[in-house]
Design a protein around this nucleic acid. Structure first.
Ligand code: FES
Ligand code: FES
Lengths: 152, 152
DNA sequence: GCTATACCCGACCAAATCGGTCTACTTTCC
DNA sequence: GGAAAGTAGACCGATTTGGTCGGGTATAGC
């Protein structure tokens, strides 16, 4: 299993959109500035999330991205999967044949681990994250800083 | 967090040594053949495991590697850590400052995840793995195949 | 209908990492 | 002394990562 910045950025962006969902569509630039992510790079990730059915986009001025499901229905696991950072720790990708057709010594171990991780991440939805005090705190700090920066 | 073949190979090798621990020191070649891993590559991993205090080596003919602790004291987590595949899913590596000095939106999430994974892997020792029926089964198959191959 | 805003798309890229090889050396047993 | 092992390190090709660039296209608002 590998969890790279791709997955992290994707979750961060989704959470950002979730937190500002009452402001209408959120533009890539807004997210990029608030979260400190390259806008061009972020676009690619959002495209995948859209393809994965987690987001819808609105084009033209005032446009941006919006969630396509209820907060509680979007799990962290689904976000990471949609963006391509698989949650599979086995080498055989579940088929059980990484040692010329046969199961290797440690297959069971990695398979169990994958289940553990996926179970954990499936149990956390955007609704959960939005509700966390720490998250709300960080979010309001980010909002303030953005307003301040734009004032210059 | 990223779990690559480095960590997988390391655990596999340690388990192989554990399974054959009554035969005296195990040579790199033996492990490589049984597990289908490049011997030259495996050497690097065993060197790290030795540096990490999990193995001791015996030089000269008939030499090889042996475990330096009791089976129950060697956890999967410690093996993976020793070989360099960290189990840290955060971007800030625990310091909580990946957004120019401040904590990012998702720090808590990754931190929790890391804990979850580490907890799981810390709870599994070589003793546990050696005791699993599936593991013993695969091991005896590998032993048979090696004897057969060497007979040619 | 212009134009500014924004998403859309695909090519491209530098750096890092991965998995692995190769060579040369040392220690130890027989 | 020679063979069997571990030790050390440079080196390498392929892939992935994280990211840029440039040109699209849709659309709201004047
Ligand atoms: S990881 Fe599945 S068979 Fe080896
Ligand atoms: S991951 Fe720790 S602050 Fe962002």
């Amino acid at each position: 299993m590998r969890l790279t910045t791709k997955g992290r950025y994707a979750v961060t962006a989704m959470l950002d959109i979730a937190l500002h969902r009452n402001r209408g569509p959120i533009s890539v630039m807004d997210i990029a500035e608030r979260q400190g992510i390259s806008a061009a790079y972020l676009e690619q990730l959002l495209a995948k999330l859209k393809k994965g059915g987690l987001l819808v986009s609105v084009r033209g001025p005032g446009g941006g991205y919006q969630l396509d499901r209820a907060l509680a229905e979007i799990t962290v696991s689904s976000i990471i999967t949609a963006v391509g950072d698989g949650v599979d720790a086995t080498r055989c990708h579940g088929t059980g044949d990484c040692q010329d057709g046969d199961r290797c010594l440690t297959h069971e171990l990695w398979s169990d681990l994958s289940g553990e991780i996926d179970g954990f991440l499936s149990g956390i939805s955007l609704a959960d994250l939005v509700g966390r005090k720490e998250v709300q705190h960080v979010a309001s700090r980010q909002d303030q800083r953005l307003i301040h920066a734009r004032h210059l």
